[in-house]
Simulated scan of single mutants.
Amino acid sequence: MMPSVVWLCIGWVFASVGVACLPIRKQFVPAGILLLAAPVLIVMIGLQFGWIFALLGLAAFISMFRNPLRYLAARLRGENPELPR
């Protein structure tokens, strides 16, 4: 039987695919929730399966959310990046 963290991760992936199908302006709130949930899942993966798998999950997370992470980094630097229409 698969551990529950695996089922949570599978659900997160399906939710991400669903959000990706939305128009860009409607993605902000659900993508923000997924963005906040991902580090929690990555830590759970690290605790249950080891930190090598957590690092792989972190690499996948950064790859998937590279544009929102760039936007947040620009906002933290005090810049005002342009949002897509």
Rank of each mutant, 00 (worst) to 15 (best):
F65W: 11
F49G: 06
L47G: 12
S63N: 11
I24Y: 01
F61A: 08
F49A: 10
R85T: 11
W12G: 01
R70P: 08
W51Q: 11
P68F: 04
G78T: 11
V19C: 01
P39Q: 05
M1C: 13
L41M: 11
F49V: 08
L47V: 08
V40G: 04
G18T: 01
A38D: 00
M1H: 14
L55E: 14
V13R: 10
V5K: 04
L76P: 04
A31W: 01
M2S: 12
R66K: 12
L36W: 04
S63D: 13
L72M: 12
G18A: 05
F49M: 12
I33Q: 00
V43P: 05
C21Y: 09
P23S: 08
R85E: 10
P3M: 15
A15N: 03
E79R: 14
L35V: 03
L69V: 11
W12E: 01
A60N: 06
K26H: 15
P39T: 04
R77L: 13
V6K: 13
V5N: 09
L56W: 13
V29P: 00
I42F: 01
V40K: 03
M2E: 15
L58S: 09
L76N: 08
P23E: 02
F61R: 02
A15V: 01
G32C: 05
I42R: 00
W12C: 03
S16P: 06
V43G: 07
L83T: 11
F49N: 05
L8W: 09
E79L: 12
Q27T: 04
G57I: 07
R70W: 15
I42Q: 00
A54E: 09
G50W: 03
I24K: 03
P68W: 01
L83K: 12
I24G: 03
A31S: 09
V29D: 00
L34T: 01
P30R: 01
V13T: 14
S4G: 12
A54L: 10
F53R: 11
A38Y: 00
W7C: 09
V17Y: 06
S63V: 11
A59C: 07
K26F: 13
V17P: 05
L34E: 00
F28Y: 10
G18W: 00
I62V: 12
F65D: 02
M44N: 08
R77D: 13
V43M: 07
P81H: 13
R70L: 15
L69G: 08
Q48N: 10
A60H: 04
A38N: 00
Q48M: 13
F28Q: 06
F14Q: 02
F49P: 03
L22G: 10
L69C: 08
A60D: 05
C21I: 05
Q27E: 09
L72K: 06
R75K: 14
W7I: 09
A20V: 03
A73K: 06
A74Q: 13
F28N: 06
L55F: 15
I52W: 10
A31H: 03
A37H: 03
I24P: 02
F61E: 02
R77N: 15
M64K: 08
V17I: 10
M44E: 05
L69P: 05
L56Y: 06
P84A: 08
R66T: 14
M64C: 15
R66G: 06
Q48G: 12
E82V: 10
M64F: 12
P84S: 10
P81A: 09
A20G: 08
V5F: 04
I10L: 10
V40R: 02
E79F: 12
L22H: 07
L41W: 01
